[in-house]
Design a protein around this nucleic acid. Structure first.
Lengths: 137, 137
DNA sequence: CTAGAGTAGTTGAGCACTCAAAGTTTACCA
DNA sequence: TGGTAAACTTTGAGTGCTCAACTACTCTAG
């Protein structure tokens, strides 16, 4: 638990904070960019980011304000509002993402081999309440 | 990173929150109980809990208020104030600790074998910025 | 013995999140 | 068809932490 806290902080400071982004901001952009139509419902993000619904509301608030995402109504279900990646969002994701994943990899390389990373990922993935694919590497 | 977040929340809700404790409260008590004289300096806790000095100040504020720890001056260095475990603190640690570690173990058992836990711990321990012994098992 | 650097700790402001409660829309079933 | 349960989301209040700036003490070198 502690390991993650410090690693997270380090990564965040490295490339994200200078652009005013948090890890969850970054991962939101990442998830959106991978999603069909580059958009996701709030509930989808709740699952993917492991936040509460209100947490997602606040997160998107900031992202919308920064122009990196947009709200879109859903025809057919007035309850849901899509979070849609804007071109500005895709752009900053590209800039940040390259540095971020580069930094991430370089942190793991040297201490952990390719196999060990896979092993770690497998073990972590088997922990209760945690499905696979919750890692943004 | 996500794995830890949800695991932490689950464990916290299980046995800690009912007593008004957070994970860090618990770990503070644990570290104090293991320390010589059952007391530690603020700086020691900064290292052990991976918090900032101000975080530790706030943490101890609550623990002191609850009567689980006490401040003690240090003869010989007026800068430091010890965080001292009280008997009430030791008592609640005992009550909570049993359930907490029991719950922790049962979460790991079934999904991870003894060897795998050791393996996971070893891999995690090699991550940069993370010394050994940062796990409160 | 004094100036500077270093160490220990606190404080105020702010942030990212949580919980509980609510509003709104949709689905299901008698 | 109407009523109730469920799904999706927001809001207000509160929490645990961080950062930056600060005070207070101690050590070391000249």
């Amino acid at each position: 638990m502690r390991a993650q806290a410090i690693l997270r902080r380090e990564l965040e400071a490295e490339t994200l904070t200078p652009r005013g982004l948090t890890i969850n901001d970054f991962e939101t952009l990442l998830h959106l960019s991978k999603a069909e139509g580059q958009r996701l419902r709030r509930t989808d993000l709740v699952g993917r980011l492991m936040l509460t619904p209100s947490g997602v509301t606040r997160l998107l608030e900031g992202l919308n304000e920064a122009g990196l995402t947009e709200n879109h109504e859903c025809d057919g279900d007035a309850r849901v509002t899509w979070a849609q990646l804007t071109s500005a969002g895709a752009e900053t994701l590209e800039c940040v993402g390259v540095n971020h994943t580069k930094r991430l990899r370089s942190l793991f390389r040297g201490t952990l081999s390719e196999d060990e990373v896979a092993q770690l990922s497998e073990l972590l993935g088997r922990l209760p309440g945690v499905g696979p694919g919750s890692c943004a590497g």
